[in-house]
């Protein structure tokens, strides 16, 4: 009976679980920046980074087993209208764990970065081809569609040290282009069509991520704080403010694994704020960064607690639509 249960858990282990790795590694990167600035001790970063690494390795192993034993299930997810976007969460996990360890184990980080870049390149093409070939209605789109796009923007963060500039620009501009075009469609869908399904409401947080990651990548590539990058930072702040005004919507929904979508974008904003503070020395960025740091830690702790509770109750890894 127990064996049957484990078998079905493996069969329904969702690709969306990789958003947990995104959240944990986002927090680790944020804590590393805080350590670098002398605000927090090293152990806080190391605890978060190694937790992210262990969870990442565990999920890669479990999903690898699923791919071997239940290939048809993986294929179904790969061709699913919503879940296809979460496949990129696997390659993004490689990239984010790479960024998280760049400050501590740079050679391990480099290996993860190469694997992540190759996987993400292929997954981006697959996802865009899937979008083009499938027949979507406007209400099918949701902010999770940004996930494959945001991944491209993350690549230059470590890539600036590992690859030629044109490689980084390629990923940066691909990410920016699709962020702008998809954003217009998502906004149109949110304003003029029916509300997002409850499950996808947390994905609204993803709005914060692209401009924040653009700020970080742009700074890493061009060592510049200018009108463009400040505009991106301001836009990320605007989305945070917007979500604060929508906060009621987030409290009324049940727990889904998609709650992890709350975590990475907020971390990205915190990292961007710390870089802005370091580059400009403006105290306002420091205060926002500290606020976002505390907020991120609280969100990750809360989402983690809900996740563990739901795992214990057997509500995760069950058959979904």
């Amino acid at each position: 009976m127990q064996q049957e249960n484990s078998v079905s858990k493996l069969k329904y282990f969702p690709v969306t679980a990789f958003s947990v790795v995104m959240g944990l590694s986002g927090l680790a990167i944020l804590l590393y920046r805080a350590y670098h600035l002398g605000w927090l001790p090293l152990w806080a970063y190391l605890a978060a980074a190694f937790t992210a690494l262990v969870v990442f390795a565990m999920f890669v192993f479990i999903y690898g087993l699923k791919a071997i034993w239940y290939f048809e299930e993986v294929k179904k997810e790969y061709n699913h209208k919503v879940k296809v976007n979460f496949f990129s969460a696997i390659s993004i996990s490689f990239l984010l764990v790479s960024v998280a360890f760049y400050g501590y184990l740079p050679f391990v980080s480099a290996g993860l970065w190469y694997a992540g870049v190759i996987a993400h390149l292929l997954l981006t093409f697959h996802t865009v081809v899937f979008w083009i070939r499938s027949e979507f209605e406007v209400h099918d789109i949701n902010p999770a569609w940004f996930i494959p796009v945001v991944g491209n923007l993350i690549i230059p963060v470590v890539g600036v040290d590992l690859a030629p500039t044109w490689v980084n620009i390629y990923f940066f501009i691909t990410g920016m282009f699709f962020w702008i075009t998809l954003f217009a469609i998502v906004l149109y869908r949110l304003v003029f069509h029916k509300q997002l399904a409850e499950k996808f409401i947390p994905t609204m947080f993803i709005f914060i991520a692209p401009p924040a990651v653009i700020f970080i990548s742009y700074f890493r590539m061009f060592l510049n704080v200018d009108v463009f990058s400040m505009s991106m930072l301001s836009l990320a702040l605007f989305f945070l403010g917007l979500l604060v005004f929508l906060v009621k919507d987030f409290f009324r929904i049940r727990f889904y694994l998609s709650w992890w979508a709350y975590t990475f974008p907020v971390s990205a904003l915190g990292i961007a704020m710390m870089i802005a503070y370091q580059a400009t020395g403006f105290s306002v960025f420091k205060y926002i960064a500290v606020f976002v740091l505390v907020l991120t830690a609280a969100i990750v702790a809360a989402v983690m607690a809900f996740t563990v509770k739901n795992v214990v109750l057997g509500k995760i890894c069950v058959m979904e639509d």
Partner: peptide, 17 residues
């Protein structure tokens, strides 16, 4: 590393805002 980054801060502002 943090202090060296601060020494090089002036190159962040190529098109000063």
């Amino acid at each position: 590393s943090l202090e060296v980054e601060a020494l090089l801060n002036f190159i962040n502002f190529k098109f000063s805002l």
